[in-house]
């Protein structure tokens, strides 16, 4: 984690090699979080690009009392959540718009049921599940990323998982 911080200090000075290092370290995980939340590879890449651009441009405002991952995931989830907001207003206005269907690009069919079940999980819980399972983040870090209490993190995750269990059981996907 200390080496993360040193790299960000170099990014703040405009060091592109250091930035490439951050992208190498976190890019795949950021893409997974964005991809599972947004459902399409193209939208995910766009969100990750915007997040990393903010990181590149705003590295000087990074506060070392946070882990670099907390900071990056905060930026990324802020972007993804706003994209989800835009989609729901768009859907409310244009009822003819088909719901986002299909598994995320590159996902094998085995995860199709889970993908569908996750769409039923409330957004905030879905964001927490993505962060928890992509990176195994602690409750404390999840709480800092989404600006909520540790207890709320726990109750949201528990509720999300119980919804998933019920949905998947209905589809016979947990047997």
């Amino acid at each position: 984690m200390d080496s993360d911080r040193r790299v960000i200090e170099r990014v703040a000075k405009g060091d592109e090699a250091a930035f490439a290092e951050v992208v190498g370290r976190y890019g795949g995980r950021l893409l997974a979080v964005a991809g599972r939340l947004l459902g399409s590879r193209a939208d995910a890449e766009d969100a990750v690009q915007r997040a990393l651009l903010q990181c590149f441009a705003g590295a000087s405002s990074y506060r070392p009392r946070w882990a670099v991952s907390t900071w990056l995931y905060r930026i990324l989830t802020n972007i993804c959540v706003d994209e989800l907001r835009r989609r729901s207003t768009r859907a409310a206005w244009d009822r003819a718009l088909p719901p986002i269907a299909g598994s995320p690009d590159g996902q094998p069919g085995a995860y199709m049921d889970l993908h569908r079940a996750l769409e039923r999980v409330p957004r905030e819980a879905r964001v927490l599940l993505a962060l928890r399972y992509v990176d195994g983040l602690s409750y404390g870090e999840l709480a800092r990323i989404r600006g909520i209490s540790v207890n709320t993190v726990k109750s949201q995750l528990a509720r999300g998982k119980s919804l998933l269990r019920a949905e998947l059981a209905d589809r016979g996907a947990l047997t």
Binding site: E16, V23, G24, G27, G28, R29, L174
Partner: peptide
């Protein structure tokens, strides 16, 4: 079983090799 499914589903993606360069360029 659910944890296994979630872990598989949320595994990190492969990142396009030129992502860092593209972002630095647009910055």
């Amino acid at each position: 079983r659910l944890d296994d499914l979630l872990t598989g589903y949320f595994r990190p993606d492969v990142m396009p090799a030129d992502l860092a360069t593209r972002i630095a360029r647009s910055a």
